[in-house]
């Protein structure tokens, strides 16, 4: 089931005017910011489907930039997000795409600076609820409702067991888990939703595994 909580229906508390096009967009932007882990120098945003047709009317542009600035759905600073981004030195580029996507409310965000770049595709499925469907070319399904670990690793036996063993050692329960890869034997991505936030020391330990390349966490 896509919707798990009554507050997915009676909620979120948000700045208008649209739960999917404003609140959902802000949430997609915020997940991108959290995964990137720092303030980006630039943000290239592509809108598809209904997002592309109506983003100005719905404030999707200010909302998604608000999210990239780490504002929550009810943060009134969203209204001035474009100005704030400019003041903070983030170069924003927005594109309306014609391509037909699986979901009508789709946005692609590329965040970057001198150190690196992150590419994320998110969909807004209604009522402010979102899913992240692509990250740096990996297909995935991430709701952003729970704390989660994203582990980039080599597509080889023992990777899942290695990560799971460390989590078990610290009594961390896995609520949902997904593994995807670009090609057999190449780079792969593990998405692990957990019940509590995870300490940096555990992330370091995970990153110490020879099979693991990178570990990122996102908070609830």
């Amino acid at each position: 089931m896509k919707y798990k909580s009554v507050f997915d229906i009676i909620g979120p508390v948000m700045i208008g005017p649209s739960s999917s096009h404003t609140a959902g967009a802000a949430r997609i932007g915020r997940v991108a910011r959290h995964l990137f882990g720092r303030k980006p120098k630039y943000a290239n945003i592509s809108f598809y489907g209904s997002f592309a047709k109506t983003y100005r009317g719905h404030g999707t542009d200010v909302a998604i930039v608000g999210g990239i600035l780490d504002f929550d759905t009810f943060d009134t600073r969203i209204v001035n997000a474009l100005t704030i981004a400019k003041e903070e030195g983030i170069a924003i580029k927005m594109t309306e795409e014609d391509a037909v996507t699986d979901h009508p409310n789709t946005a692609k965000i590329v965040l970057g600076d001198d150190q690196g770049q992150l590419e994320l595709v998110g969909i807004s499925i209604g009522g402010g609820k979102i899913e992240i469907t692509e990250l740096n070319g990996f297909e995935l399904k991430l709701s952003g409702n729970h704390p989660a670990l994203l582990v980039v690793h080599n597509d080889r036996y023992g990777a899942i067991a290695g990560v799971a063993n460390i989590l078990a050692k610290y009594q961390i329960n896995i609520g949902h888990m997904e593994v995807s890869r670009k090609e057999k034997g190449e780079e792969a991505l593990m998405v692990i939703e957990v019940d509590q936030n995870i300490d940096q020391s555990i992330l370091d330990e995970l990153e110490g595994l020879p099979i693991v390349q990178q570990v990122v966490k996102i908070h609830e």
């Binding site: 009676i10 909620g11 948000m14 700045i15 208008g16 005017p17 649209s18 739960s19 999917s20 402010g128």
Partner: peptide, 21 residues
């Protein structure tokens, strides 16, 4: 009307339909 003015509302189930409930 408050929603359209980018005011604070609670989506029920969405913002566009937040007035009915």
């Amino acid at each position: 009307e408050v929603n359209a003015a980018m005011g604070t509302i609670c989506a029920t189930p969405t913002a566009g339909s937040a007035g009915v409930v």
